[in-house]
Design a protein around this nucleic acid. Structure first.
Lengths: 124, 124
DNA sequence: GTGAATGTATTACAGCTGTAATCCAAATAA
DNA sequence: TTATTTGGATTACAGCTGTAATACATTCAC
């Protein structure tokens, strides 16, 4: 089974666009990222190229213009990144992450209640 | 307020050693990492140097040999990495991460119960 | 048909990372 | 005292990343 290629920070933004709406032309990606970033169009084309090189995406040449689409799913990538992040920072254990987050008070009472509901479902 | 410098994967391993027992000589760090990694001593010295350069650690010259110690706390670093990870992958939201993890069945029933207890405490 | 625009391909370049090796000075052994 | 060892400082070098610019080819407007 093939593991997903490593996707860098900047590349990740491009992937999110393609995961949200696929396929996309380069220009569509550029437009989608215009609000969130200050990247020049050439920069985004470079990122598309690199993603194609590392086989995270591919493209077909529809009516003269490339239409890019992901080769790896968001779920796969999220899972892979999360796993390696947890391993790096928390030694692979998920609980300390939650504990840390609760300590930091990043969650509202509503969030906490919702998490409890999720956990309840899981215990059913 | 100063933010923590970015600590790379390999550097993180060194920091963990220093957080666990501080101060440490280079040789102590090298020995501590001998089981977990295949790194040559020179490699670890390089990492110590880089960490000192980016002011994540410093050292004092005790009896002819450097004794290294962290300048940033594990808590700070963990928090900073976690925040930027969440922002990158999950758009900053913590809940999807938990949901994802539960989906993947990475947690035992005991884990789930423990998380619920933590959340209960938080709600009290 | 020729110049301008547009999309694609190639090239650029510095900083960070992984992974060391080499050089040098001081201490130690002989 | 001289050769060896050892620790620290400097240098190496390629691959990845961020951030594009330039070169080239095709198409479109005149």
């Amino acid at each position: 089974m093939t593991s997903v290629p490593h996707i860098s920070d900047a590349e990740w933004e491009v992937m999110k666009v393609l995961w949200a709406k696929t396929p996309c032309t380069a220009n569509e990606v550029i437009e989608a990222l215009a609000d969130q970033t200050d990247w020049k169009p050439k920069t985004i084309r470079t990122l598309l190229n690199r993603l194609a090189l590392k086989q995270a995406i591919s493209y077909s040449q529809e009516n003269k213009v490339y239409a890019y689409f992901p080769l790896v799913s968001e779920d796969e990538c999220v899972k892979s990144e999360t796993t390696s992040f947890l391993k790096r920072i928390y030694g692979g254990a998920f609980k300390p992450l939650l504990v840390n987050f609760l300590k930091e008070d990043h969650l509202s009472q509503e969030d906490i209640q919702e998490l409890k509901n999720i956990l309840d479902d899981k215990t059913k």
